Amino acid sequence: MPSANLSKASLHFLGNSRDLPEPFIFQFNPESMTRVQSYSEKNKKITETIRLRLIFNIMHGLSDNNPQAIEHGIYPLLAALEEYVAEQDKLIRLPGILGRLGPKLQRVMVLSYGERSIPVRIVRLNIKELVHNAQLTPLHATADLSLRVLGESELSGNPQGKAALENYRKYRKTSANSLTSLIHL
């Protein structure tokens, strides 16, 4: 029996603009998550990449007797995910007087995953439609997402994005520091 407290992972853009797309809440939590840290000798920087495998299935929509799910299958979900790739390149203004006077800023996307909120950029999306109905409407698919964690220089002009990165790093450090208590259980 599913827990009522089940958290769902999602992608969303920071800000309070009416122009922002709705959060993309994953239909199911990712099948897998891989985090890769790479060190560049040339730049002397560590970059972090997150890879997720998402599963989409029509059975979820059918159980709710959703007429859109019956007619369009999971295609609206796949299309919304594809639109998120395009939306990340749009520029926004900060709210208030600073926004009206200052330069436009790059939108900041955040991956919310449990207690982690990580500023990211989608660098690759690979959708594989696996099952279709007679009208070739997708009913089951997987999506492999590659996300790059944004760095300080990319977030320097966006206070919300910078705060999200700092909070993610603090959470990771706090979690690492709690390791000693886990070892001594």
Score class of each variant (00 low, 15 high):
Ala4Leu: 09
Asn5Phe: 06
Asn5His: 05
Ala9Asn: 07
Ala9Ser: 05
Leu11Pro: 03
Gly15Val: 00
Asn16Leu: 03
Asn16Val: 00
Asp19Val: 01
Leu20Ser: 08
Pro21Thr: 05
Glu22Asp: 08
Pro23His: 00
Phe28His: 03
Ser32Asp: 11
Ser32Phe: 04
Ser32His: 07
Met33Trp: 04
Met33Pro: 03
Arg35Met: 12
Val36Thr: 15
Val36Ala: 03
Val36Gln: 14
Val36Trp: 06
Gln37Lys: 14
Lys42Asp: 09
Asn43Pro: 03
Lys44Arg: 12
Lys45Phe: 02
Ile46Ser: 04
Glu48Asp: 12
Thr49Gln: 15
Ile50Trp: 01
Ile50Lys: 00
Arg51Met: 11
Arg51Trp: 06
Leu52Pro: 05
Ile55Leu: 12
Phe56His: 14
Ile58Trp: 12
Met59Tyr: 11
Gly61Ile: 02
Leu62Trp: 11
Asn65Cys: 11
Asn66Ala: 09
Pro67Ile: 08
His72Tyr: 10
Gly73Glu: 05
Tyr75Val: 07
Leu78Met: 09
Ala79His: 13
Leu81Gly: 07
Tyr84Val: 02
Tyr84Pro: 08
Ala86Phe: 09
Glu87Leu: 12
Gln88Cys: 08
Asp89Thr: 06
Leu91Cys: 13
Arg93Ile: 00
Pro95Thr: 03
Ile97Gly: 01
Gly99Ile: 00
Arg100Ser: 09
Arg100Phe: 02
Leu101Met: 12
Pro103Val: 01
Leu105Ala: 13
Gln106Gly: 06
Gln106Ser: 15
Arg107Phe: 13
Met109Tyr: 06
Ser112Gln: 13
Ser112Val: 08
Gly114His: 07
Pro119Leu: 03
Val120Gly: 00
Arg124Thr: 09
Leu125Pro: 04
